[in-house]
Structures are given as C-alpha cells and as structure tokens.
Design a protein around this nucleic acid. Structure first.
Lengths: 129, 129
DNA sequence: CATACACTTGCATGATGACGCAAATACGCA
DNA sequence: TGCGTATTTGCGTCATCATGCAAGTGTATG
C-alpha cells in the first residue's frame, strides 16, 4: 500500500490515480494524527524514540507523571495506530518506534502537500473539491 | 520560530541544541496533530489543498455534510494551528493551506525520527529517557 | 436606508477520551 | 505451589470537543 507502483499508466480511475500520485485524500489519514495528538502520548513516543532500543512499560512510565495503567493504554493505542511495535520478553513488554514506517508516512503526506502547492497545481478544473 | 538560526554555535544549551538538531522532543508538537486529528478537518484540509487557490467558507462547506458554522469553526481552528492562512476579500473569507510550513514541519519530524533510528543512535547512555 | 449574503458566535447536547484506582491476568522464581 | 513483579482491564469521573440551531456581526447592493 505504501509501495504501490509508480510507473506511468493510461486511463486510471480517479481513485487509483489518487493512490498512485499519493494524493492528499489518501495520505491525510486522521488515524496517525489521532495517535500523536495527545500530549502525553507525544512524550511517550519521544521517550521511546530517544531511547533507541525497546522500552518496557514501566520504564516509559517514568517519563511522565501519569499512572502505569494509563501508559499501558497509551502504548497499546500507539501500537494499534502503527506508531510503535510490540515485543514480549517474559513478563515485560517492550515497545519500539516504527521508525521507517512513521517517517515514510510523514514524508508521504509532505510530498502530497507539496504536490498540491500553488506552484505545482495552480488553479485546476475550476471547482473547489 | 520556523526560521531560527542554523549556523553552528559552540556551547549550546540543551534546549537550543535540541531545536538546532530538530530533536524529537521539540519537533513532536501535538498542536499540529490535534488540528489534523479530526476527520472532518482532514476532509476540509484536503479540499482546500486540492483546490490550490484560496477557498471561501461556503465553498469548503460543500465538501462535507456539516453545517457552515461548524466549517467556520474548523477553519478558524486550523488557521490558529498554522495549517491554514486566512485572507479576507470583502465579505468572503478565503482559507489557503500553508503548504511550505506544514510540509516543513512534517519533514522536520520525519528527520527527527530518522535521527533516532536504531542505526543512527543505537543504545545511548543507557537510561531510558 | 433596507435587504440579502457571508460568516461568526452563543448555547445546549451528545460523544469521545484521558485519568486514577482497584482488581485481574501473566509470568518468573523460590 | 505460593509469592512478587509486570502489565492489562473494568469502572467511574471529569474534561474536551464536535455538532446543530439560532442569533449576531459585517459588508456589498438595490
């Protein structure tokens, strides 16, 4: 889905054309942003990212002042959103940032926005939306 | 704030060093993501982005099924968040995407994440956070 | 000036979600 | 098997926010 074909093709449906060009409709998915919109989660992600290695729930909980149960819920949410990946070692659960995936998603959105820029698309077919 | 000095300086405070290197603490600001986390706002932003030119509130309201007042509030919020810029022409208010700013913010975060990647930072000074 | 249009704002409502505490589950270890 | 540690889950509460409707503000046009 992220590695779709980019070679030129004639007569694409609008939907496929959108995906192929990384149109902003497809890339601007609120799911990732919902995950990063909470300030506590932002701290947790930054904590794990800086750590580099996988962090246990208890370790991450020391980053902020909220309860461990809250941290556990936040990390599970971030994993579901694709921001983190989980690995279990015995009774400890380690979370790590999906560096390449998150970075790629952000760059895809940045690319889509750049493609929509006034220099590249100008006044299109008139109608708004 | 977006155009801070990037030239090399000796003896930076940690905060300044963080800003200079685009550390994830500073770049991972939930404000932008809060703005894009709502599905209705995502539609509105995509609508304006695809439009290329500035769109009036009424035009954007036709993109989705919510009331014009709701759209007005969403657009004002997005403008406060730095996603959109506003310009008034008579009695119509036009919103446009801050293409370069938003794109730059997203790439800065992607860069910060990449810098935190396991290949580039590995196991740092031991402690998590 | 009166009217119509474009937009904003006040207010009430319902939904979502973050949080803490307590209890439950999972697992290693003696 | 019993205990301690790590994590998850149930539940109640409080805050935030998205939405619609109605009323208000500002501006062009007759």
């Amino acid at each position: 889905m992220m590695t779709q074909i980019r070679k030129h093709q004639p007569s694409l449906t609008p939907k496929l054309a959108a995906r192929r060009s990384g149109a902003i409709d497809v890339v601007l998915d609120p799911a990732l942003f919902k995950a990063l919109a909470d300030s506590t989660r932002a701290v947790l992600v930054a904590c794990i990212a800086k750590c580099g290695r996988g962090c246990s729930v208890g370790e991450v909980a020391e980053c902020c002042s909220v309860d461990v149960s809250v941290v556990s819920r936040h990390l599970a949410l971030l994993a579901r959103a694709g921001v983190l990946e989980v690995s279990k070692q015995g009774r400890t659960v380690r979370y790590q940032v999906r560096y390449t995936d998150v970075s790629r998603s952000l760059r895809a959105l940045a690319d889509a926005i750049d493609e929509c820029g006034p220099t590249s698309c100008g006044a299109r077919d008139g109608g708004c939306c």
